[in-house]
Amino acid sequence: MKIVSLRVNGAGQAFIARPGTTLLLALREQLGLTGAKRGCAQGACGSCTVLLDGQPVVSCLVPAVTVDGAEIATIEGLADGQVLSDVQQAFLDGFATQCGFCTPGMIMSAEALLDRNPDPTRDEVNEAISGNVCRCTGYEPIVSAVLDAAARRRSRAGEGAKL
């Protein structure tokens, strides 16, 4: 047993990590953040993707005891009140969701991509979401939504620069 202190979506949090607990289970069952999903519990489907110190990780493979002091970002922290992030809005407008189960992980992978590469090619988007399995959409609307989100972010940055 170990007390793990960390920041989740910008707020200080702590939980008791039992042996064998993963970051995914701690988020879902101890911190009440159920946006990250358990699809395979073996790091293969990407449904549990969150950002650990800015990097996308499959949280089902991250031992909870190792995240003491870390900064975690989950799907629940993206929107500002009613205002969605550009990636969320682009997924919504572009019909990039179907059953919705892969969507939180997919969006977190996309956020991580756009944070490090504001103008990705289609191939770079494919590469960035290659660890996220979607069984419904066939990926095309997802890839288009990520490219659309990148354009929205660049446009917003351009407006900011003019100010």
């Binding site: 159920t34 946006g35 990250a36 993206l78 969320q88 997924f91 919504l92 969701t97 969507t103």
Partner: peptide
Amino acid sequence: DALGHVTGR
């Protein structure tokens, strides 16, 4: 259901 999907709710 799309708003729930993109917000994880």
